[in-house]
Amino acid sequence: MRALLSKAPGGPDTLELSELPDPEPGPGQLLVRVKACAINYPDVLIIEDKYQFKPPRPFAPGGEIAGIVDSLGEGVTGWAEGDRLIAMIGHGGLAEKVVVDARQALPLPEGRGFEEGSALILTYATSIHALLDRGRLEEGETLLVLGAAGGVGLAAVELGKAFGARVIAAVSSEAKAEAARSAGADSVLVYPRGPFDKDESKALSKQFKDSVGPDGADVIYDPVGGDYAEPALRSIAWEGRYLVVGFPAGIPKLPLNLTLLKSCDVCGVFWGAFAGRDPGANAAHIRTLFRLWDEGAIAPTVSATWPLERGGEAIAHMAARKAVGKLVVTMD
């Protein structure tokens, strides 16, 4: 089989297309013919050894797949050869075949394509955990979403609307603004590219405040970080919840006096650890996502695809913060 491997720490240009023997499923495992692998920001970090987990090399990045069951390991029940599935696997997805723990796989519904299926779990599961468990979002509240045209951003916009919030989407271009509007955002603001000096930071803060209104944002969903964080925090409501989701613009330093003045919470969001620590609660969220998907309230947006041999380009596109919705690598 072919696989796109990271053999040494580095950027997307260091990935090598290699031939490997097919893996064999062990007890409780499925061998899956990968049809599509979604690219997420952790794929940018993991090949540079900057992610929380550092798999032994060589390894293929790609933690979110859709495919077809090729064979079953000993003791597997509930699955058959030819079944369609989606799965979160951490890494290894940029390969034509991969071994998956049968307990971690989910059936891909009939009528749903592999590309769309591969783009569902990570962004929407992260966002539903963030909004409901960490943000305690309630109907009628105001939700400000930074980076609202990216994968997790669009998911947060759609879920915010599904849960009855007023959603303000913040993006960096008019093209991204259109994507946020299509996802259902009530209003959209286009902010400039950082970094910002003191006056520019103050202007951005006013832009956020004007957009969310005089009462502030009850929940702020921030998958961007960097110089955007403090101006956004300054627009938060009394007892608001600021959700720390990611840092493609850099890890910010927040003045904690702002949390005192607004009596607000700054909440970390680490969906992977949550899913491992409370699998029952995560499974309930997944059921909710599948219901909303079936009802048409959410729909993964795949804006671009690449073949396996050009998978590094997809990761580079993500690293450059050019992604609208999800980027997917296909094997066919």
Rank of each mutant, 00 (worst) to 15 (best):
G10L: 08
L15E: 02
S18Q: 15
P23K: 06
P25D: 11
L30G: 12
R33N: 13
R33K: 15
K35Y: 05
C37N: 07
A38G: 14
I39M: 01
P42I: 06
I47D: 00
E48D: 09
D49L: 12
Y51A: 11
P55C: 12
P56G: 09
G67V: 02
D70G: 10
S71E: 14
G78H: 08
E81Q: 15
G82H: 13
L85H: 10
A87F: 05
L94Y: 04
L106I: 13
L106V: 11
P107C: 07
L108H: 01
L122P: 06
T126Q: 00
A130C: 10
D133E: 12
D133H: 13
E139T: 13
T142K: 08
T142D: 00
L143C: 13
L154G: 00
L159K: 10
A162G: 05
A165Q: 00
S173I: 07
A177Y: 08
D186V: 09
S187Y: 05
A203Y: 07
F208M: 02
S211H: 06
I220P: 03
G226L: 02
D227M: 12
E230S: 11
L233N: 06
I236F: 05
E239A: 10
G240R: 04
R241L: 08
F247M: 09
P255W: 12
G268P: 08
F274D: 00
F274H: 15
F274M: 07
A275Q: 08
T288H: 03
L289A: 00
F290L: 14
G296H: 04
A297I: 01
L308S: 12
G311E: 02
G311F: 02
H317L: 06
M318G: 12
K326F: 07
K326I: 03
D332A: 03
